[in-house]
Amino acid sequence: MNKTNSKQIFLYFSWIVSVIATLGSLYFSEIREFIPCELCWYQRILMYPLALILGIATFNSDFTVKKYVLPMAVIGWSISLFHYLEQKVPGFAAIKPCTNGVPCNTEYINWFGFITIPFLALTAFTLIIIFMLLIRSPKVK
């Protein structure tokens, strides 16, 4: 497989991950009627545009999108990690309590004792970051 094909596959996988994450969050809020907390909203603000940006880039084979996607994914990853720690580490929630609506340490799901909604977001952002890093930029000589 040549380099362009592998770049296209990584771009495509990034887009698929962002679409699944977007649809998953919409499923939890619109169908299961879980009310998103403040940190969930921040993660959505960073994930939803990625589905559109990566979709356009995938169909245009635009590998330069990496410079736009990586900062958004890294910020989303950081928020997801903080949110997950807030749920799973005792005393961590006291650092920044959510003030409006649902508390951020609420666990709507807890599959296998560790998979929560912020963990799913963390996984999606991690995969997008990895796929973006695998899209190597051409070396300047």
Rank of each mutant, 00 (worst) to 15 (best):
P97F: 03
I16L: 02
V17M: 10
S14Q: 15
N105L: 03
P103W: 01
P71Q: 09
L122R: 05
T116E: 04
L26W: 15
V74Y: 11
F131L: 05
A94V: 05
P138Q: 12
P36C: 02
I31D: 01
L54R: 11
A51F: 13
K139N: 03
S18E: 05
L70V: 15
G55V: 05
C104I: 09
Y27I: 12
F112H: 07
K7G: 06
E38G: 06
Y42M: 10
L50W: 06
V140C: 04
R136G: 02
N5V: 08
A57L: 10
N110T: 05
K88N: 14
I20G: 03
Q8G: 06
L39M: 10
A124Q: 01
C104V: 11
F112Q: 00
L85D: 07
C104G: 04
A93N: 13
L133N: 07
A51D: 02
Q87H: 06
P71W: 12
M132T: 14
R44L: 11
Y12P: 02
I109Q: 12
S6I: 01
F112M: 12
W77D: 03
F63C: 04
I109K: 09
P97T: 13
L70I: 12
I117T: 05
V65C: 04
I45Y: 10
S25K: 08
T58I: 01
F34H: 15
P36D: 03
R44D: 09
T4F: 08
T4M: 02
L127A: 11
A21V: 00
C98K: 11
P97W: 09
I129R: 05
S29K: 06
K7E: 12
I115E: 09
I109H: 11
S14F: 12
S25I: 10
S18P: 11
Y27V: 02
P97V: 14
I53Y: 08
N60Q: 15
K139Y: 07
P97N: 14
I128R: 00
P90H: 02
V17R: 07
Y108W: 13
I31S: 02
T106P: 00
F112Y: 14
I16K: 01
F63I: 08
P49E: 09
P90C: 00
A21P: 12
